[in-house]
Write a protein that binds this DNA or RNA. Structure first.
Lengths: 139, 139
DNA sequence: TATAAGCTTAGAGTTAACTCTAAGGTCAAT
DNA sequence: ATTGACCTTAGAGTTAACTCTAAGCTTATA
C-alpha cells in the first residue's frame, strides 16, 4: 500500500503520515526500489491505533508510550496503561473545569448586557471586565 | 509607576507587559529621560482589563477589539460587545463538547480495565484503542 | 515520448501567547 | 567609584502537531 492509499483509508494526510514516521510513531515496513513507502496491513492498523488514540485526546508522547506497550504487551501491565489513561483524564478534567468557569462567566456577561444598538457607555460587559477580579485570578 | 511595580500589582511579568505593548494592547503613557516606562493609574487599569479579559477566555485579538470599544464607548454599541462575547462563548462551548466527549471515553476506558499488575495481553484499553472508531472520527 | 500525477527529502512556516537572552544603559547605595 | 538591581531593545526560543514548499525522482497513461 502506498502512502496515498493509507492516507485515504485513514483520513490522515500523507504529510501527517510522514510526520508520524519522522517522530517514530509509525513507519512503513517496506520501501520500493525508488524509495516509495509501502505499508503493510499491520502498519495501517498501527496508524489507525494512533488515530484513535489521538481522537481520544492522547498526545503524541502518550501515544509513543502506548505503542511501545502495544508491541510487547507481555512485558507491560494493565496498570501502566491505566496510569497513562488516568493522567490524561486528569488533564482533561482540569481543562474542562477551566472552560466551564469561562462558560459560566461568559453566560453571565451575556445575560447582563442588553446587546442592543445602544452605545456602549454603560455596557455591563465592559463594566464587568473593568471591575476585574473576574473569577479565578491565577496568581 | 515603573514596570516592575505594575508587574507586582497585576501579577503579569514585565516581559508580558512589554509584549502587550509591542502588540498594541497597553503601553506606558510616559517614559523617563532614560527611556524607562512610566505607567499612569489609567494605564494600570487598562492592564487589569486585559488581564480580566484574558482570564475570561478572550484571545489577545478579541481584547484588541474590546479595548478599542473601551476607549470610545460612545461610538460603539452593546451589540458589538455581545457579538464578541457570543462568539467566544460558542468557541468555548465547542471546545467543551470535545473535551466532554474525551472525558467520557477516558472514563469508559478506565472502567473497562482492571488496572492491575497483570500483563497487558488482554488489556481492554489497548483493545478498545485497537478497535478504532472511537467516538467522533473527525473526517 | 511526453505529460501529469505521485513520491522523496530537508527544512521552513504556522499558531498563540508568551518567555528568555544578550548586550548594554541607569540608578541607588556604599 | 563600584556594586547590584533594574531598565532598555531586538530578536530568538518554546510548545504541539501539524502543514507546506522546493527541488528533484518515478510511474502510469496517452
Amino acid at each position: 500500500m502506498k502512502i496515498s492509499e493509507v492516507s485515504q483509508q485513514t483520513g490522515l494526510s500523507a504529510h501527517t503520515l510522514r510526520y508520524y514516521e519522522k517522530h517514530g510513531l509509525v513507519s512503513a515496513s517496506n520501501r520500493s526500489e525508488a524509495g516509495y513507502r509501502f505499508y503493510t496491513e499491520l502498519d495501517v492498523r498501527r496508524v489507525q491505533f494512533v488515530k484513535t488514540a489521538r481522537n481520544t485526546g492522547f498526545s503524541l508522547d502518550d501515544i509513543q508510550q502506548l505503542l511501545s506497550i502495544r508491541v510487547d504487551k507481555q512485558s507491560h501491565s494493565c496498570q501502566e496503561v491505566t496510569d497513562i489513561t488516568q493522567k490524561k483524564l486528569l488533564q482533561v478534567n482540569a481543562k474542562l473545569a477551566e472552560l466551564q468557569s469561562m462558560q459560566q462567566t461568559l453566560e453571565l456577561l451575556l445575560e447582563s448586557c442588553c446587546g442592543g444598538p445602544e452605545n456602549a457607555t454603560h455596557c455591563s460587559i465592559m463594566e464587568a471586565l473593568d471591575a476585574g477580579r473576574s473569577k479565578e485570578d491565577k496568581n
